[in-house]
Design a protein around this nucleic acid. Structure first.
Length: 458
RNA sequence: GGCGCCAUAGCCAAGUGGUAAGGCCAAGGUCUGCAAAACCUUCAUUCCCCGGUUCAAAUCCGGGUGGCGCCUCCA
C-alpha cells in the first residue's frame, strides 16, 4: 500500500514497524461543542484507513484523543458556569452520537488530556532536564533553537517564518517561535499542581504524551487535518523527539479542507454546519459518501446541492442491495456466473485503495459493479448468485463504512402489505391505495416492482 | 516575504506518457391497475491558455492566466 507522507512529500510504500500491526494516532476533537463537517472529514477518512488496514489483515491500534482542556474549553465552561470535566463529558457523549451516524467506529483508545496530566508533566520535566525547555514565571516553553530539525515537517525553518514578521513577540519567551508546554493558571482558573505551580498543559504536549503512552515512542502513522501541520504537528515532533531521541512518527497523513459554498468555513462568516445540523435533513451515511467521493487530500466544497447529489448516489447503492436481497430470498435457481465479476471487483477495489486511499476511484469501481449486478439480474433471478454478489458488495461497502443499516420492517407494516396484496388481487384498487397511504403514514414507502413489493423506510 | 495546492462535461470527480472511470442532472426506452420508484441505453474527438519534448501528452518541461491554503486558535 502506498501512502502520501507529508514528511517526505512523496507517496511511499507503507511498511509497519512491527509486521502485521499498524499503530495510528489521529488528532481528535476539542470537546467544547458539537463537531462540524470540517472535523468530520478526518474522522471519516482515518476511520476508513483503519478499516482498510483491517481488511488487509493487519491488527490496528487506533488512538484518537479528546482535547478536554484548552482556551476554548475554559471560555465555554465559564460561559455555561460549569466545570471543564462536566463540559468535556457532555460533548464526548455527543461526539459518539454523531460518530455512530457517520459510521465512525470507536477508536481502540480514546484518551483524554486531563487524564494524562502526570505523563505530560513527566515529559516536560525531561525536556527541561535535557535543556530543551525553560521555565518562566510558572510557564514552561520549548526552546526551538535547541532542536535543529525544527521545520522538517512543514518545510519551513524558523528564519523563513520570521520573514513574515507576523509572530507576536512575548517577552516571556527567549525566541518568538518557542511554544508553551505548560501554562500557569490565571487567578480563579481551573488547574493542576505541577513542579512549576498550578497550571495546565499547552496544546501540543498532550498528543505527544498520549501517543507515547498508548503506542510507544515511535509510531507508524500520525494523522490529522492539513492545518495541523504547522504548528501543532511540527511542535509535537520537536518535543517528542527531543525528549526520547527517537523518531516520533514514520508517516504523517493530512487531509484537505472543506469549504462551504466555496468559502472557508468560519464562525465570523456564519457559514458553519455541525454534523448535528445535517442529520436533521439527511442520513449521515450520505455525508460519509460525500467525503469519500473525492480524494482525502483534495480540498472539497460543501453545499446543499452537493449533499443532495450524494444522497441520490447513496440511494442507488441501497436500491441495488435491496434488489439483490430480494432475489437472494426468492428461492429461484439459475446458472449465473458471477465469479469473474467478483474477482474483478476485489482486485480493482484493492488497487484503488492501495494507491494512497483513493476512495473516489474505489467508489467508481463499486458503482460499475452495481451496474453489472443490475444487468445480470435483470432477467435471471438466480438466488444463490445474487447472494454471492450481495456478500461481495457488502464486504467492500463495509470497508468504506457505507454498509446501510438494516431497516427492520415492523409486523404491523408487514400485515398491511399482505392486506393490500389481497385487495389488489381482488382488483379493489381503492382499498389498495388506501392501505398504501396507511403504510406511508407509518413511515414506510411501498413500491410495486416486477419482483414483487418492496418496502423501505421513508 | 516564505512554504504548498489546484484548474477534466450543466454540477461533482478519478485518471501523472498510449489515446477521457464513476456519481448527480438531462433525454430516450423497459416495467406498471394507477402512482412513484427502479432498471437499461445515450450524454467530453477532449482535459484553463501559449510554446516545447516525444512515434504518442489531460498526464513531462518552460512561460502565462485564474482560484485556493498555511505561516495566527482551527480538522
Amino acid at each position: 500500500m502506498k501512502l502520501y507522507n507529508t514528511l517526505t512529500r512523496k507517496k511511499e510504500d507503507f511498511v509497519p514497524l512491527e509486521p502485521g500491526h499498524v499503530k495510528i494516532y489521529a488528532c481528535g476533537p476539542t470537546v467544547y461543542n458539537y463537531f462540524h463537517i470540517g472535523n468530520a472529514r478526518p474522522f471519516i477518512i482515518f476511520d476508513t484507513l483503519r478499516r482498510y488496514f483491517e481488511y488487509l489483515g493487519f491488527k490496528v491500534t487506533f488512538v484518537q484523543n479528546f482535547t478536554d482542556v484548552d482556551d476554548k474549553m475554559i471560555t465555554r465552561a465559564e460561559q455555561e458556569r460549569t466545570t471543564l470535566a462536566e463540559l468535556g463529558e457532555r460533548f464526548i457523549m455527543e461526539y459518539f452520537k454523531d460518530a455512530e451516524g457517520l459510521g465512525i467506529r470507536a477508536a481502540t483508545v480514546h484518551p483524554r488530556a486531563t487524564q494524562h496530566i502526570g505523563e505530560i508533566i513527566s515529559i516536560v520535566r525531561t525536556l527541561i532536564e535535557k535543556g530543551h525547555a525553560y521555565v518562566n514565571d510558572g510557564d514552561v516553553y520549548f526552546d526551538v533553537q535547541s532542536f535543529p530539525d525544527y521545520g522538517k515537517l512543514s518545510g519551513q525553518s524558523a528564519q523563513d517564518r520570521m520573514a513574515g514578521a507576523r509572530i507576536d513577540v512575548f517577552e516571556q519567551k527567549k525566541n518568538p517561535e518557542d511554544f508553551a508546554l505548560w501554562k500557569a493558571a490565571e487567578p480563579g482558573e481551573e488547574g493542576w499542581d505541577s513542579p512549576w505551580g498550578k497550571g495546565r498543559p499547552g496544546w501540543h504536549i498532550e498528543c505527544s504524551a498520549m501517543s507515547m503512552k498508548y503506542l510507544g515512542d515511535t509510531i507508524d502513522i500520525h494523522a490529522g487535518g492539513q492545518d495541523l501541520i504547522f504548528p501543532h504537528h511540527e511542535n509535537e515532533i520537536a518535543q517528542s523527539e527531543a525528549a526520547t531521541g527517537k523518531p516520533f512518527a514514520r508517516y504523517w497523513l493530512h487531509n484537505g479542507y472543506i469549504n462551504i459554498n466555496n468559502e472557508k468555513m468560519s464562525k465570523s462568516k456564519g457559514n458553519f454546519f455541525t454534523v448535528r445540523d445535517i442529520a436533521e435533513k439527511y442520513d449521515l451515511s450520505v455525508v460519509r459518501l460525500f467525503m469519500l467521493s473525492a480524494h482525502y487530500r483534495s480540498p472539497i466544497n460543501f453545499s446543499e446541492e452537493l449533499i443532495a447529489q450524494a444522497a441520490s448516489a447513496m440511494a442507488r447503492i441501497k436500491n441495488c442491495r435491496d434488489n439483490l436481497k430480494h432475489i437472494s430470498q426468492s428461492g429461484a435457481s439459475g446458472e449465473t456466473n458471477v465469479a469473474s465479476h467478483i474477482t474483478a471487483l476485489k482486485a480493482r477495489f484493492r488497487q484503488a485503495m492501495d494507491d494512497d486511499l483513493n476512495t473516489a476511484e474505489a467508489l467508481g469501481v463499486i458503482f460499475e459493479f452495481i451496474r453489472e449486478a443490475n444487468q445480470l439480474f435483470e432477467s435471471s433471478k438466480d438466488a444463490d448468485a445474487a447472494a454471492e454478489v450481495l456478500t461481495a458488495l457488502d464486504n467492500v461497502l463495509e470497508v468504506l463504512g457505507l454498509l446501510p443499516k438494516e431497516d427492520k420492517i415492523p409486523e404491523r407494516v408487514e400485515e398491511l402489505v399482505k392486506k393490500r396484496q389481497e385487495a389488489r388481487a381482488a382488483r379493489d384498487y381503492a382499498a389498495a391505495d388506501g392501505i398504501r397511504d396507511q403504510i406511508l403514514s407509518l413511515g414506510y414507502t411501498l413500491k410495486d416492482t416486477p419482483d414483487g413489493v418492496k418496502i423501505s423506510k421513508t
